[in-house]
Design a binder for these strands. Structure first.
Length: 858
RNA sequence: GGGGAUGUGGUGGAAAUGGGAGACACGCUGGUCUUAGAAACCAGUGCCGUUGCGCGUGAGAGUUCAAAUCUCUCCAUCCCCACCA
């Protein structure tokens, strides 16, 4: 019954009003400061964090979704009485600022800060409840100086080193990339640009020192999605095995040439060994060749003296490169080149040929393998192709079992053809053989990780300067701590030629050596931006600290983060570096926690018409547009309503319009009755209610229970919004009764108040407006979250299903507390059932209390 | 090749534990109001030449009184890892 006098829901006006009020109250979203005496805070703490954005200048729908989830949770926790830390910041270094500088002739700093201002405006417009007093901007010196400080601490601890190495080079970025930033052989930012390998001197962080801990720690992260844990496990890639040294034996030809004084370089030393890594040392008696990676140093050495080999090896390297790019590495044909030389199996002194093979990788294990064709599919394929002997050394454990086909790739077996080790199980043989190797000095049990040290050098301008100086006399000299920060110079010329732009800034480069005072050269590489995001969430707890990255006592109060929310695309890079950084800080004595994040939630992508939003597809929906048309509340609420938060969400504008209509109904409903109940007293505890009042109270308390439960873990906010809609629908259906005063004012007031409270995490602007309209004083954020009264939520009569042979026939109403007998007789008394049974007696009657009766008839 | 997720009306989705499939919304149809439209409100909406004791949760089998849910085989889409020795 729409009444003409109902005011129109104008989200723009309401949201504008509250945005201003909130801006005037900076303490509203601030946590109680933990500064000196965190123990004195009585409320329990709750640290909820969304991943900080890169300041591109425009929020996208993925951000809106991410922040709507986090903000709903934060608001809920505030209302539950927690001391909530809910901060926001900017991951503000990085290449796009330099690209924009080139394109628009704007300095990166200016461009970045303008973008931050624009995005902050968008966030405020969305009504996101952040404490801006703790804002962190990573490109400002008071943040990045602590990157430098950490770098120096890590240098002291031996966790930073510099080495010449093959590195991934993106020609588009004109800089080095970490392994983690190479995707299918291409740059993570330029998906069609192939990454090249270059030999450069680079700075590395020794993350591999923590490989084991990072892996083992995953077992305890039970608040993380299993998917993310699996991805990290694969990335760290632990494998247990053994290293074995095979003596290298030159070919007869080479030996003769050496004797006649025509020694070739690289083949003249007496005892070269080839180290191989294997997970199956138990199969070593089946090794019939040794395979080297094409880029193995020994191969390089041999090839330098052998033109034919050099050409062929170059081809193998090329094949590997192509294989990596093709996407289906396993499908590339195995191919190899014999070197003509030999290796000696240390266990039986057998001489076996040394090959170079395109399926052996230099950057894993030892870059060389022992080839056991009988028990490895790749080795088998290779041996077949080149007629290399195949010797079975593992038989099925069951002596009566049929002879298995080769290759027999199994660790469930016993050794054969393995000298004195015959009959041992694989597991036992692995132990014994590794021990023998160790005792005799030609090998040992070892563990290999796929994880590599983190190369953080970038030959770019817009990043944290690495605080080191190159002195001709003293070598690498750290910048003394009291000279930090090493400031990034302004007014530099950005080009996209190789080498850091900083190298061309004379004022920056030319320094005196901190040790000897002579002229020296400053390091011009900057740090990977993933350094910035590895510890930013600690800075939020003490963002203004000018003497330390943060106060340990404060960090101890807030950490670990209770809930971290972001996209699954950060499952490896950011989330593994962060876990590493926390451990480093722990070992520096700065924090006590091993892990930064207790619970992690990865939200799904926002898609449109079944595809990821992208400019090239032309299916990008702008948050500003949505907010302008439907308001921030409707936009946010739709982002929560359209799909469960962990699944992909298909953006449909009609759906946003639907939410807007719903909010309009809520607005009219509450404003219609608010004046009548504003001054009503509290509900008398003893007054029994009935009719419409009871019906609505029941629905209300069921809704409270449902939403409260969801916030506690299931997070199906889409159904929470649906539940509020059901409540409102029911109230609207009772509109005539409400208008006629069928519900006592105190009860109606209570229902409306609670409805507004339930709405507060999802539509904060409207909730604040209606809260005030109800005559409530004080922020709704400080009002206690409603409590469900089980007695009121309980139905007194239930509809139960009556089935015959599992098929629904009818429903009957029974008292809510009906026992089995009552349910059975109610079912059997039903007209339809009696007709269907036609006098027959059910062979069996299944009763599910409160739910159904199933009559089994033969 | 290995691992994981997903598959339900015209659409987004609901159904914690095996117990009434399709909540809530979008869209659509009809209506009320209106000069008209918009808005708002009301009613309907899984499918069907068979309106049925009918069919129906990617396909097929199985377990069960009862399966979207559990088991097996297969198909499709997406994600992660991948000559990892």
């Amino acid at each position: 019954m729409a009444e003409e006098k109902d005011p129109r829901y104008e989200p723009a006006a309401i949201e504008e009003k509250w945005q201003q009020r909130w801006a005037a109250d900076p303490k509203l979203y601030a946590a109680e400061p933990a500064s000196s005496t965190p123990a004195a805070i009585l409320k329990p703490k709750y640290y909820v964090l969304e991943m900080l954005p890169y300041p591109s200048g425009q929020l996208h729908m993925g951000h809106v979704r991410n922040y709507s989830i986090g903000d709903a949770l934060a608001r809920h926790m505030w209302m539950r009485g927690y001391n909530v830390l809910h901060p926001m910041g900017w991951d503000a270094f990085g290449l796009p600022a330099e690209n924009a500088a080139l394109k628009n002739n704007t300095p990166p700093r200016e461009w970045t800060l303008a973008n931050i201002a624009a995005m902050k405006r968008q966030m405020l417009r969305l009504g996101l409840g952040y404490d801006w007093a703790t804002e962190v901007t990573t490109c400002l010196p008071d943040y990045y100086r602590w990157n430098q400080w950490f770098f120096l601490r890590m240098y002291e601890k031996g966790l930073v080193y510099r080495k010449q190495s093959k590195v991934n080079w993106c020609p588009e970025c004109a800089t080095v990339l970490a392994n983690e930033q190479v995707v299918d052989g291409c740059c993570w930012r330029h998906e069609s640009t192939r990454v090249e390998q270059r030999d450069l001197e680079q700075w590395f962080l020794r993350i591999t020192k923590y490989a084991k801990e990072l892996l083992d720690g995953l077992d305890h992260l039970d608040g993380w999605p299993e998917k993310v844990r699996t991805m990290q496990r694969n990335w760290i890639g632990r494998s247990e095995g053994a290293e074995i040294d095979f003596r290298f034996e030159r070919s007869i030809k080479d030996m003769l040439e050496e004797q006649s004084g025509e020694a070739k370089p690289g083949t003249s030393q007496a005892h070269i060994t080839i180290r191989v890594f294997t997970t199956r040392i138990d199969t070593i008696f089946g090794a019939t060749s040794v395979q080297l990676a094409p880029e193995h140093p020994l191969v390089t050495e041999l090839a330098s003296a052998d033109h034919g080999l050099r050409t062929q090896v170059a081809r193998l390297i090329d094949e590997q490169k192509k294989a990596r790019e093709s996407g289906d590495v396993g499908a590339i044909e195995k191919h190899g080149v014999p070197t003509g030389h030999f290796a000696v199996n240390p266990f039986n002194n057998e001489l076996m040929p040394v090959w170079v093979a395109n399926y052996v990788l230099m950057d894993y294990g030892a870059g060389a393998i022992m080839s056991v064709p009988a028990h490895d599919e790749r080795d088998y394929e290779f041996a077949k192709k080149y007629a290399i002997p195949i010797r079975r050394v593992i038989a099925p454990a069951d002596p009566n079992a049929e002879e298995t086909e080769l290759p027999f790739v199994s660790e469930e077996g016993v050794l054969v053809n393995s000298g004195t080790f015959d009959g041992l199980t694989c597991a036992e043989a692995q132990k014994q053989l590794a021990k023998i190797a160790e005792n005799n000095g030609f090998g040992k049990a070892t563990v290999t990780y796929r994880l590599k040290d983190w190369g953080i050098s970038r030959q770019r301008y817009w990043g944290t300067p690495i605080p080191m100086v190159h002195c001709e006399r003293d070598g690498l000299v750290p910048v003394p701590e009291d000279k930090l920060p090493v400031l990034l110079p302004d007014n530099i010329e950005i080009t996209q030629q190789g080498g850091s732009p900083l190298a061309r800034v004379a004022d920056f480069v030319n320094v005196t050596c901190p040790k000897c005072g002579r002229n020296a050269r400053r390091e011009t590489d900057t740090m990977d931006t993933f350094v910035d995001s590895s510890w930013y969430f600690y800075r939020y707890t003490d963002a203004k600290n000018s003497t330390a990255p943060f106060d340990s006592a404060i960090a101890k109060y807030w950490f670990p983060i209770d809930q971290y929310i972001g996209g699954v695309e950060h499952a490896i890079l950011h989330l593994i570096y962060s876990r590493f950084w926390t451990r480093v800080m722990r070992d520096l004595g700065l924090v006590e926690n091993d892990e930064p994040v207790r619970r992690l939630f990865t939200q799904g992508m926002v898609i449109k018409d079944g595809a990821k939003m992208s400019k090239s597809r032309g299916n990008v929906v702008s948050p500003d547009d949505m907010v302008a048309r439907y308001g921030a509340d409707a936009t946010r609420m739709y982002a929560l309503f359209a799909a469960p938060p962990d699944r992909d969400l298909d953006w449909q504008e009609d759906g946003v319009a639907g939410i807007s209509r719903f909010l309009g109904r809520v607005y009219r409903l509450v404003t219609r009755y608010a004046p009548a109940v504003r001054n009503a007293g509290p509900v008398a505890p003893s007054s029994p209610s009935n009719g419409t009042a009871l019906k609505l109270q029941r629905k209300l308390h069921q809704t409270i229970a449902k939403i409260t439960l969801d916030f506690e873990g299931r997070w199906h906010f889409n159904t929470c919004v649906a539940a509020v809609m059901e409540l409102v629908n029911e109230m609207q259906a009772a509109d005539a009764d409400l208008g006629a005063g069928a519900v006592p004012a105190p009860i109606l007031r209570d229902i409306l108040r609670n409805l507004v409270l339930l709405l507060a995490p999802f539509a904060p602007f409207l909730a604040a407006e209606l809260w005030e309209d109800m005559g409530e004083r004080g922020a709704i954020l400080r009002a206690p979250w409603p409590k469900s009264d089980p007695a009121l939520a309980k139905e007194d009569e239930l509809e139960i299903a009556v089935q015959i042979n599992g098929k629904l026939v009818t429903v009957v109403r029974v008292p809510a507390d009906a026992n089995r007998e009552q349910m059975e007789s109610a079912a059997l008394a039903d007209e339809k059932i009696r007709a269907r049974l036609d006098g027959k007696t059910p062979a069996k009657i299944i009763i599910v209390p409160g739910k159904l009766v199933n009559l089994v008839v033969k």
